[in-house]
Design a binder for these strands. Structure first.
Length: 281
DNA sequence: TGACACCTGGGT
DNA sequence: ACCCAGGTGTCA
């Protein structure tokens, strides 16, 4: 489900609401969503029980929750993962697939809350680690620079060293982290580049265009709370709004807002790809 | 580097 | 009944 803008929106929303709260209980209802082996005995500690929420981090599509003593849980949202924040008591909108539930309390002890990891398809997962340092060294260093931070030189180097088509390369998290199927298609349309172009054929000015629109589109999408095609919802259960601004994604057969040609849709490297044959070269 | 697998659910 | 979905890991 979520690409960089959805994850960043979730990070901001959660940061506003749970920093400083204490985690008093952790309930694991499906242990197999934990993606690092943790002995049952150590599980609730690894999942941050008795910690105070210090900070939320993001790299690409990964989200991490850090508590005061340094312990961290990383969340990979996969296709359908969601972090929901609920008052206690309340009647949850979604009652199924709630795999992990954290009980949160503010320092005054009033207003109890619940943070819920929900993931119907279970492509996502949780990774408990001892520190941000460990998370960065063992995991985040294996994927590329964050899409909002990558510089032109690095992007150019990463693109020019492969013959694969640009659409596929933008989805490769080792090249840059955070772009998925929606934003790859949107960025290529904005930049006027065909998704089938071999990455190593791109001129410097074309790479500059990719970078410019990458930043512009991701920023705009974050502002709009991300795109909700079907599942994406933020911690308050709210959908994003950026789907209303999609130029190509999800609009096959529609007409291009720039040149009026029909928008095409075809499988490319196993993913449905949307583009305009009139103005993307 | 691509095909397939992993899951559930919604739309046709 | 079948196809499709915002992701990613493994296999030949």
């Amino acid at each position: 489900m979520p690409e960089l803008p959805e994850v960043e929106h979730i990070r901001r929303r959660l940061s506003d609401r749970i920093i400083g709260l204490e985690i008093t209980r952790v309930l694991v209802r499906r242990a197999d969503v934990i993606r690092l082996p943790v002995p049952v005995k150590a599980r609730s500690k690894a999942l941050l029980r008795n910690g105070r929420v210090k900070m939320l981090h993001r790299h690409g599509k990964k989200l991490a929750l850090e508590i005061d003593d340094g312990r961290v849980v990383e969340f990979g949202l996969g296709m359908s993962g969601a972090l929901l924040l609920e008052q206690v008591p309340s009647i949850p909108a979604a009652t199924t697939h709630r795999h992990v539930i954290w009980s949160l309390l503010d320092p005054c002890g009033d207003q109890p809350m619940r943070l819920v990891w929900r993931d119907p398809r279970r492509f996502g997962g949780l990774r408990p680690v001892d520190s941000m340092r460990e998370l960065r060294a063992r995991f985040w260093s294996k994927i590329g620079p964050d899409a909002l931070e990558i510089d032109e030189k690095t992007l150019a180097r990463n693109l020019n060293e492969t013959k694969r088509v640009i659409k596929t390369v933008l989805l490769d998290q080792r090249v840059l982290a955070g772009v998925g199927n929606i934003y790859a298609d949107e960025v290529l349309h904005a930049a006027g580049l065909s998704p089938m172009r071999p990455a190593d054929s791109l001129e410097r000015t074309e790479i500059k265009a990719i970078l410019r629109y990458l930043r512009r589109i991701l920023d705009q999408a974050i502002e709009d709370g991300g795109s909700t095609i079907r599942d994406h919802q933020d911690p308050d259960g709210l959908p994003g709004g950026f789907q209303a601004r999609h130029a190509v994604y999800g609009r096959p057969g529609g007409c291009c807002n720039r040149c009026g040609e029909l928008i095409q849709s075809e499988q490319l490297g196993g993913r449905t790809t949307h583009w305009c044959s009139g103005c993307q070269n």
